[in-house]
Design a protein around this nucleic acid. Structure first.
Length: 883
RNA sequence: GGGCGAUUGGCGCAGUUGGUUAGCGCGCUUCGUUCACACCGAAGAGGUCACAGGUUCGAGUCCUGUAUCGCCCA
């Protein structure tokens, strides 16, 4: 039953109208009564609030939504929650500036705290004016502030048409996430997978925090090679080249490659350092690169990660001089005992930044004659914290680690096996996982010396001596989580025992943000919180994400799930590519070429933008192309117009439409359904293989042929007038075929252009197209019988050949053809013949239409399928109705 | 330095396990059109598939090497 078809169709306003309807009707609400095999669960990336959503988000989240909508139409109940990532520095800074506060974990929680500011118009509050608050208060303020971000993000996602169940949202700092992260950590601790160690690690002096391998970024950093002499007992000078002469006082060995002939005679001997006269050994290690610099390197504790390797493998002493604040130690180290060296250190180096210390040392080396030539400028790779702007130092500190296979071959093999078990889309993305896991050189450092984040849920006893006993942490019960050890006392203790002998101290650190976000399946799935939900959704089906965070988010999630649940967290990982700007560069804010997503959606319409996104395959970078969106918009409008047309033949609103395939009797109509059956098979197979692009392509191609050829061919017959086919069944056949095809094509297109398809669906079908069943080919094939799609192709070509006559004669397509003869290739002849009535009608052939077999070499298959018009006579063009 | 991906008409992309004459869209040219659609329709022009070797009866497709671009890791 056709309820209504608008006179004038439009895409405008569909986004808002259907978002409201889908919400009101709970179209995407998750039905948790379904069992695991009836559910498709998606572990969606939580976007970072405080950041902003950009075109790349729209792009990749659309890919996920296409899958979600497809799976839902396949009859699966889709578990598709959305989260907000508010961990990390950007949120911390915004909270500080917006409310004029700073987090001080040493403070107690204040009930009902009101911050001094409510927004400062973008101006920063000076650190001195910031009011210190407890971590719990800080987190509460964060939740207050990010509520606005979340509202804006949700509005964008709704407009884009993400079929998320909006009653299922979470924040990575909310109580559930904190409890989950802490519980998982305590489980790791209990099984010995989390441990603390006093070890050299990367340290950011600006942010005053330890940094994990996964957060490293190697950048070019300008420096100078200094050629510096060490001294043998006999006075011979051994030259090394270093970019960090300020670390000479921290030198513990000179190291050359074991096969390097130049240094064979030195191995096993000692040299003394210039200026400081510290005696150090000359050692061999394959890590030394003979063709780099002098071929012999100064090993300091610690200048870089190679030093750490040498220190560990050659069991060298620790002689650190750089402190956590990035300055040289204020005490003269005990190993520097030569009179002049000691004095020099004390007067020129103590407390200086590494930069100033370098200047002082280089001046002194020049004076003592130990500097050979002048420093030579160079670009070297230095390790940076991805958010920092100073090279990382390496300092020794006590930190918590979680085992990730970086130090344990057996665990590494298990994790590599998990990688093989996971279906990556596209498959080659697996290599990035394997390279990363294979290249790990340490466990996962999870402690962060930050204030804002999920607290490490531990306290430590304070001994009678006043010393803190880190070896026997006090662990909270899982029921008490989340806890904040800096503002809560452990069970059995009171707050007045904090920091006093016989009492306790709380661990002041927070966990790495990945330590929380690696648990998104557990957070959304109700792990240890909602056992019923958990067994319905876990392990999950799909993790969509970007390729840049395979080493972090994907890997850490696999680690947690493997350790905690002995399972892979999901079956599939769908990796989206980048958005490139017209210069084929990654789009970035700094380049100022980022378009605000909401503007994009408003300007082009959501279906158009989704079409652009869906036209790019997983893992493939895509150009930001407005042209592609315009094509999507054209498709959406065409769907509206063609549908309006197809539904109008029965008489428009109020007319009955049957979808009974038995009524499709004409060969041409059956041929069209045969073609559609094939499209259904191809689109389904493509979507099953996470190849949404192919599904869209075959559907779209068929749809355009349907509009350009089929619709034109059957127009007159569907109207039921004007041809020699006065037979009502011919008209009914066309009308039924049109409706059946429309019904199927709307469903095929629904995951891609959900708004236009839903609009059409609402004109004549019940419920939402997004809860309609995904089409299957069998009924179409049954209706098509033995009809072959070549009938449609051939008839379309014949029509095109007639059009060409008119086009070349530069006359209107409405010009009648008084008579014509077509030479048709043998393979197409029967097809054209069986559709001759429709071809004549669509081509406006009023007289004879002769069909003859084409001769050898006649016609070009690439042009109108080889059909050639051998004779034609045009009638008078129709008079124009002007005015 | 290692790894992964890309290179097809002016632009953006398809091209399934090697198989007739390499497709699609945009743009372009010409024409048409207001009773589905001007956010339109029809017809047309336009390509030594980055380069060099090799395997094969046959290579855009497989192998080797080179170049350029992008990303990741050292």
């Amino acid at each position: 039953m056709v309820r209504e078809v608008p006179d004038k169709v439009s895409l405008d306003g569909l986004e808002t109208r259907f978002d409201e309807r889908w919400s009101a009707e709970g179209t995407f609400a998750f039905d948790r009564t379904k069992t695991r095999n009836e559910i498709f669960s998606i572990d969606t990336p939580p976007p970072t609030v405080s950041g902003s959503l950009h075109v790349g988000h729209v792009f990749s989240y659309t890919h996920t939504d296409v899958v979600a909508r497809y799976k839902r139409m396949q009859g699966l109940e889709v578990f598709y929650p959305m989260g907000w990532d508010d961990n990390g520095l950007p949120t911390e800074r915004r909270v500080q500036n917006y409310f004029g506060v700073r987090c001080d974990p040493s403070l107690p929680y204040v009930e009902g705290f009101e911050p001094p500011h409510q927004g400062t118009d973008g101006k920063n509050v000076k650190p001195g004016d910031q009011v210190p608050v407890s971590r719990r208060n800080f987190i509460e303020l964060c939740e207050r502030l990010t509520a606005e971000d979340e509202r804006l993000f949700e509005a964008l996602w709704r407009r884009l048409g993400l079929s998320v169940d909006w009653s299922q949202t979470y924040q990575t700092i909310d109580a559930t996430s904190r409890a989950t992260a802490q519980r998982a950590f305590l489980r790791n601790l209990g099984r010995g997978e989390a441990y603390q160690a006093e070890a050299p690690g990367l340290w950011d002096v600006t942010f005053q925090t330890a940094v994990a391998q996964a957060e490293l970024e190697a950048r070019d950093y300008p420096g100078f090679f200094h050629r510096v002499a060490f001294h043998r007992p006999d006075g011979e000078k051994i030259f090394i080249e270093t970019t960090r002469p300020e670390l000479i006082p921290a030198a513990v060995a000179l190291i050359a490659h074991p096969d390097d002939e130049r240094y064979q005679h030195l191995f096993g001997t000692t040299v003394t350092s210039p200026l400081f006269g510290v005696e150090i050994p000359v050692l061999a290690h394959p890590g030394a690169e003979p063709d780099k610099g002098a071929g012999i390197a100064m090993c300091c504790t610690f200048g870089d990660l190679t030093d750490v390797t040498w220190w560990r493998e050659l069991q060298l002493p620790t002689r650190s001089i750089v402190q956590r604040d990035g300055r040289v130690t204020r005490e003269v180290p005990e190993w520097i005992s030569s009179g002049p060296g000691e004095r020099f250190f004390e007067t020129e180096l103590t407390g200086k930044t590494t930069f100033s210390a370098r200047t002082a040392i280089v001046d002194a080396l020049r004076e003592s004659g130990d500097l050979d030539g002048e420093p030579v400028a160079t670009q070297r790779k230095a390790n940076f914290y991805e958010k920092g702007d100073k090279p990382l130092e390496i300092v020794t500190s006590r930190q918590w680690y979680i085992r990730n296979g970086g130090r344990d071959a057996a665990l590494r093999e298990e994790l590599l096996a998990r990688g093989k078990e996971l279906d990556f889309h596209p498959d080659f993305m697996r290599v990035r996982y394997e390279n990363w896991v294979g290249g790990l050189n340490g466990d996962w450092l999870v402690s962060r010396q930050r204030f804002f984040g999920v607290a490490i849920p531990l306290w430590y006893p304070v001994l009678a001596s006043g010393e803190v006993d880190h070896d026997h942490p006090i662990v909270p019960s899982e029921e008490s989580l989340p806890v904040d050890p800096t503002s809560q006392a452990p069970a059995g203790h009171t707050e007045d025992q904090r920091g006093v002998p016989g009492g306790f101290v709380g661990d002041a650190d927070v966990m790495d943000t990945w330590a929380t976000s690696s648990l998104t399946p557990q957070i959304v799935g109700g792990w240890e919180r909602d056992a019923d939900l958990w067994q319905r959704v876990y392990p999950m089906d799909l993790r969509p994400q970007g390729q840049d965070i395979i080493r972090t988010w994907l890997f850490s999630t696999v680690v947690r799930s493997h350790l905690e649940n002995g399972a892979l967290p999901w079956k599939n990982a769908a990796i989206s590519g980048w958005i490139l700007d017209p210069d084929r560069k990654k789009m970035s804010k700094s380049k100022g070429n980022v378009v605000t997503p909401m503007d994009l959606l408003v300007e082009h319409g959501s279906d158009a933008v989704r079409y652009w996104a869906a036209a790019a395959r997983l893992g493939t970078d895509a150009a930001f192309e407005v042209g592609q969106m315009k094509i999507g918009r054209r498709l959406a409008i065409k769907v509206l117009n063609a549908s309006k047309f197809a539904l109008s033949f029965g008489g428009g609103a109020g007319s009955q439409i049957t979808l009974d395939p038995a009524k499709v009797t004409e060969p041409l109509d059956r041929a069209m359904l045969a073609g559609l059956a094939r499209v259904v098979d191809q689109a389904t197979a493509a979507l099953e293989a996470y190849d949404h692009t192919r599904a869209l392509e075959v559907t779209e191609t068929f749809f355009w042929t349907f509009c350009d050829d089929y619709l034109e061919l059957v127009k007159d017959r569907a109207y039921g007038a004007g041809t020699e086919s006065t037979d009502a069944s011919g008209s009914e056949s066309a009308r039924t075929a049109l409706a059946v095809a429309l019904d199927v094509m709307l469903r095929l297109l629904a995951p891609f252009i959900p708004f236009a398809t839903e609009e059409v669906w609402s004109w004549w079908r019940e419920g939402s197209v997004h809860r309609a069943a995904w089409p299957v080919a069998a009924p179409l094939r049954d209706a098509a019988g033995d009809a072959d799609v070549v009938v449609l192709t051939a008839a379309g070509h014949a029509l095109a050949a007639l059009r060409k006559v008119k086009s070349e004669a530069k006359v209107s397509m409405r010009t009648p053809i008084l008579g014509a003869e077509l030479a048709v290739p043998a393979a197409a002849l029967a097809g054209v013949r069986s559709a001759a009535v429709d071809v004549r009608a669509a081509g406006r052939v009023t007289g004879e239409l002769a069909l003859v077999a084409a001769g050898e070499g006649q016609g070009d298959l690439a042009v109108q399928g080889g059909i050639v018009v051998t004779r034609s006579e045009l009638g008078e063009p129709e008079a124009r109705n002007k005015g």
